[in-house]
Amino acid sequence: MAKIFAAFSFILLVFLSCGAQRAIMETDSNIKKIKLGMSKQEVINTMGKQYRVAGADRLNDDSVMELITYENAYNEEYQLWFKNEVLMKWNRIHKYNHSHDRSRRDTIH
């Protein structure tokens, strides 16, 4: 019984990992469908629900800005800015890994 449970757990883990990886790999394909002026819900329907809310702010005119991000398979993320739930701006950035940069001078030893 323990072997069956272990095998089932392993298969489930592989299945879930593959699903998450597939969603990340589809990010680059889906971003090509994104257009400025789309609603936040249209973007989520296109890109998928695997986003992260990275920030929000209420502006002087009482409008709301929100930033959500999607990761891709290349250690990059897409940042999408919404004003009152309408896509105003997006860009792709490389997620920098500071722990591997030996040129940084501010590292504590």
Results as ranks from 00 to 15, higher is better:
residue 49 K to V: 06
residue 109 H to C: 02
residue 35 K to G: 03
residue 30 N to Y: 04
residue 47 M to C: 06
residue 38 M to H: 06
residue 18 C to V: 13
residue 43 V to F: 04
residue 33 K to R: 11
residue 32 K to Q: 15
residue 109 H to V: 14
residue 104 R to Q: 12
residue 21 Q to R: 12
residue 27 T to Y: 09
residue 102 R to D: 04
residue 64 V to F: 05
residue 23 A to F: 10
residue 70 Y to W: 05
residue 23 A to H: 12
residue 56 A to T: 08
residue 57 D to E: 10
residue 92 R to G: 07
residue 36 L to Y: 05
residue 46 T to H: 01
residue 68 I to M: 08
residue 92 R to S: 12
residue 46 T to Q: 07
residue 82 F to V: 01
residue 84 N to M: 02
residue 46 T to P: 02
residue 106 D to L: 07
residue 48 G to M: 02
residue 5 F to D: 15
residue 76 E to M: 08
residue 21 Q to D: 05
residue 10 F to R: 10
residue 11 I to M: 15
residue 27 T to E: 11
residue 25 M to P: 03
residue 23 A to N: 13
residue 19 G to A: 04
residue 107 T to G: 06
residue 36 L to R: 13
residue 67 L to P: 02
residue 62 D to L: 03
residue 68 I to Y: 05
residue 35 K to M: 10
residue 9 S to E: 12
residue 24 I to F: 10
residue 94 H to L: 09
residue 66 E to A: 09
residue 50 Q to I: 03
residue 77 E to M: 07
residue 66 E to V: 04
residue 13 L to C: 09
residue 42 E to L: 06
residue 14 V to S: 13
residue 108 I to C: 00
residue 45 N to Q: 10
residue 25 M to G: 00
residue 105 R to P: 01
residue 65 M to K: 12
residue 100 H to T: 01
residue 86 V to S: 10
residue 62 D to I: 01
residue 41 Q to N: 13
residue 94 H to R: 10
residue 70 Y to H: 06
residue 76 E to H: 09
residue 36 L to A: 08
residue 56 A to E: 14
residue 18 C to R: 11
residue 93 I to F: 00
residue 11 I to G: 04
residue 70 Y to R: 05
residue 3 K to L: 15
residue 48 G to C: 04
